[in-house]
Write a protein that binds this DNA or RNA. Sequence first.
DNA 1: CTCATCTGTTAGTGAGAGCTTACGGTAAGT
DNA 2: ACTTACCGTAAGCTCTCACTAACAGATGAG
Lengths: 115, 115
Amino acid sequence: MAYNNAAFAALADPTRRAVFERLADGPRAVGDLAEGLPVSRPAVSQHLKVLKDAGLVTDRAEGARRVYQIDPAGLGAMRAWLDRFWTAALDAFAAEIDRQNNELQPKPEREDPPK
Amino acid sequence: MAYNNAAFAALADPTRRAVFERLADGPRAVGDLAEGLPVSRPAVSQHLKVLKDAGLVTDRAEGARRVYQIDPAGLGAMRAWLDRFWTAALDAFAAEIDRQNNELQPKPEREDPPK
DNA sequence: CTCATCTGTTAGTGAGAGCTTACGGTAAGT
DNA sequence: ACTTACCGTAAGCTCTCACTAACAGATGAG
């Protein structure tokens, strides 16, 4: 349950979001990712470590280079959490609308007379 | 596009996540939320401000108290972004699998590597 | 009007995150 | 074996963020 924290924290940083979005097009190496980003290559490497610890990407050695790739499992877990939360929030929202409607309808109850 | 940044950054903090999850059950006041959380009431108030600026919650004055409530729109926008990103990542993932198969088995047209 | 309750805001502090530079290690090419 | 290319990690610095304490505003009850 708490592993979502790492995923959200990982995607919170704009630079890390940029790295992650670049990986959406396909697997890429570290230097390739750093090229075009306003940060140095070691910074990208650190960001990739965070993304990897969060379960959002996987890395594989391809010769001297190291290719990173999005892990659909981690992204799927995040999506599942958001979906579950989404339905709960919608239910609570609908219930609140009903509650307000019942409250606005003047019943034989004396608690909150409208000004 | 960049407003997602605020949403992700807002949900990155564990305390803010706790506040947000408590609001999933229904609208609540500030003091009610602070009760049971390991932080002071002003801290909760600040977190609610961040969540409000991120478009994740809405506030309404109810007498002297201030009731906060989850904004389905903000949560929906976040979900939409994640869904769009989800499909793109899946497509790239499948394409990568195909590419690897073709690379490992260049000569035969069979896409059935028994390995 | 006065007092109590509830809340938002500000100032200040301490911890943590992100960046760069420098270094060490591994793989391919000459 | 030497050189080049690519990458991860450690040290150091800066700066943002989350928290508490104290203050200011608004509402309801008496």
